[in-house]
Simulated assay, not measured.
Amino acid sequence: MNRIFHKSSESMQELEDKSVDLMVTSPPYNININYGNKWENGKLISSKGKKYKDNLDEENYRNLLEKTINETKRVLKDDGQIWFNIKNRYDKGNMIPPFWVMDFFQDMYLKNIIIWNFDWGGSTNKRFCSRYEYVFFFTKNKDKYTFNLDDVKIPALNYRPDRYKSQLKNPSDVWRISLVSGNSPERTEHPAQYPEELIERIIKVGSNKNDIILDPFMGSGTTAVVAKKLERKYVGYETEKEYIDIANKRLSNG
């Protein structure tokens, strides 16, 4: 497959039923932010990259996600899985956790809610600084799905050879993985880029070589880059041509 389509993922007629092994994505957060410009002390200090405002009408936003999720379920194999990254939002002084997305997955099985914890980000003086996002892990089949635990085990801090066979252990459901900083080698001009390390763990544990990985909100191509590195195939959708160009450049350099 190995292709990124320049269109909305609300319709994926290019993909056959039950043809995808794993979907991982981070949709627009719809948090009413102007992306693409860099501000400091209220002044514009740089302007580059694609500009867009993340402020869909709430009903249209949820309809977009629902249509994309329904299409994903259509193209997902019977033993396939979905990993869905989303964060809290704020409206009129209230925090709105994203648990409403589970309404779109009533016919799937929720296996984990991963807390993706990072060590820096925006600041505020009226509440504690947010340093986490969610990754929902759903499977299409209750019992039959890929889970390559040995490929993602981590060193145990308190390894005791008299009690454990290995000094490696199952990661918890709290993953401490840094955001992509401005000076990171993987940094692009995309304003909401998630780290390769996060996607690498998901693709390793949830798929096998030559499996097809879908990202319906491809952005700068991180999912495709990691899939290629791990010898998987990728397919994605992205409405902004500039981001597709960034993704293809990353893929050609990999």
Rank of each mutant, 00 (worst) to 15 (best):
K165S: 14
D91E: 12
F136K: 05
F136A: 08
M95C: 00
I114K: 04
G93Y: 07
R163F: 05
K67L: 06
S123Y: 12
S220E: 09
R3L: 13
P216Y: 08
E40D: 11
I45C: 00
K249V: 08
N41F: 14
I177T: 14
L230M: 03
N253L: 14
P97W: 01
I212C: 09
F217H: 08
V152H: 05
W116V: 13
Q81P: 01
R187Q: 02
Y29M: 08
L251C: 11
K204H: 12
N94W: 08
S46A: 11
G36V: 00
D57I: 09
I199W: 06
H190W: 04
P185Q: 09
Y35A: 04
N248Q: 12
E16K: 13
Y237V: 03
R232Y: 09
D79I: 03
D91K: 12
E197M: 12
I199N: 01
S220I: 11
D103Y: 13
Q167L: 10
P27T: 07
W100L: 14
N30H: 01
N183Y: 08
C129S: 01
Y243T: 09
I4F: 10
Y234C: 10
P171A: 12
R74T: 12
E231M: 06
N63K: 09
F118W: 15
I113P: 03
I177E: 13
E189R: 00
F137Q: 07
D119N: 15
V152N: 00
M12N: 09
N55Q: 15
K38A: 04
K209D: 10
G219C: 10
S123K: 12
E66N: 11
V174P: 03
D21R: 04
K241V: 01
I82R: 03
K38N: 00
L251Y: 13
S19Y: 14
R163I: 04
T139I: 02
G236W: 13
Y35C: 06
I96Q: 00
F105R: 03
K153F: 00
K48C: 10
D91S: 11
Y134S: 07
K48F: 10
G80M: 08
Y35D: 05
N85P: 05
L157G: 05
N41W: 06
D151M: 01
D173H: 02
N208A: 01
K169G: 10
W39L: 01
I82G: 00
L64V: 00
R250T: 08
I96F: 00
R201Q: 13
K67Q: 11
Y109C: 15
W120P: 00
N141H: 11
N208S: 07
R62W: 10
T25A: 15
I213V: 15
P191D: 04
E14H: 03
N248R: 11
D211I: 06
K204L: 15
T68A: 14
I154R: 07
N117M: 14
W175E: 06
Y234P: 09
E196H: 04
Y52C: 05
R163K: 13
L65D: 06
I177F: 12
G80R: 04
K111M: 12
Q13G: 02
K144G: 01
D57W: 06
Y243D: 11
Y90H: 10
S46H: 01
A156E: 03
F147G: 00
D103A: 12
N170L: 09
G93H: 07
I69P: 06
K142I: 02
N210D: 15
P161F: 06
Y134M: 07
I4Q: 10
Y35N: 01
F136Y: 14
I113F: 07
G42Q: 05
R176K: 09
K140S: 02
E71G: 13
P155K: 09
D211F: 10
L44N: 08
